[in-house]
Amino acid sequence: MSTPEQTSTHAGSQAARAMAARAHRRGTRAAATYLVRSAWLVGAAYWVVVLAIGAVILYIELRGDDVSISAVGGPASSARFFLLVLGIILPLGMIALHVSAGGTRRSLTHGLWAGSLVTGVTFGLATTLVLWCGGWLFTRQGWTIEPERAVYGDWSQIGSVLVVESLYCTVYFLAGMIIALAYYRTGGWLGTLLIPVALVPLLVAETTLQSGYFGSPLSGALGVPEMSGWLVPLGGLAAVALAAAILQVVLRAIPVRPVEFGQSVTG
C-alpha cells in the first residue's frame, strides 16, 4: 500500500492534478450525456404529440379552407417552453448523485452547459424541420404564408430559423435550471423571489430574437427596434451566456440537501 509514489500522491501533486483534470472531463461528459439523453427520451414523446396536434389542426383547417393560424408552426415553436419545464425537472435529480459519485459542482455546471447547448441545437433542428415540412405542405396547397414580425420571414429561411430556434431552446432550458436550482439552494420564499433573475436572459433572448409568442409583441411594447443581421444571433448568444453565468453562480458552492428534501422534490 505504501510505495513511495502512492504516499507522494496528494491533492496538490502533479499526478493528482492530471487525475483531477481527467476526472473533470469525465464528470462533464457524464452530466452532459445524461442531460441530453433524458431530454431526448422525454423529448421524443413531445415531438410525437407536436406532430399529432399539427396534423389534427391541419386537417380541420383543410376542411374549413381557412388557414389563419400556423398549424404546425405553433406547437413546434413551443419546444422552448417544453425545455423550460424539463430544465426545472432534470438537474434537480442530478446534483446529489453527481456529487455522491465524486463529481464537483464545477464539472456538473460544465456538463449542464454542454448538455443544454446540444439539447438546444438538436431541439432547434427538430423545430426547423417541422416548420419546413409544414411550410412545404402549405405551399403545395397553393397557400401563401403572411410573414409575422419575426426575424425570419418564413420557413424557407432555414438557416435563420435554425439559429433562432436553437438559441431560444438553449436559453429556455438554462432558465428552467436556474429556477429549479435557485429554489433547491435557497428554498421557499427566497427561491420564489429569485425567479425574476431567471427571466432576465429570457427577456434578452425574446427582445433580440423577436419571434414567436412573446418576442414580437414584447419588443414592440418595449420600443426595441427591429433587429436584423448579426445583431440577432449576437443578442441570442448574449442571452445564452448570461443564463450560463447565472447558472454557474447558483451552482457554485451549492450544498447538497439532506435526503428528505431530495425525495420530496424529485418524488
Binding site: H10, M19, S100, G102, T104, A253
Partner: peptide, 25 residues
C-alpha cells in the same frame, strides 16, 4: 487527504472528491 500526505479542504477539490464516497441512507 491521504495518509502521509498533506490534508486539504475537500469542498470542490476534484482530486479529494473523486476519492471520497458517501453513501447516504
Amino acid at each position: 487527504g491521504p495518509a502521509g500526505g498533506p490534508l486539504d479542504d475537500p469542498f470542490e477539490n476534484p482530486w479529494v472528491m473523486m476519492h471520497t464516497q458517501l453513501v447516504r441512507e
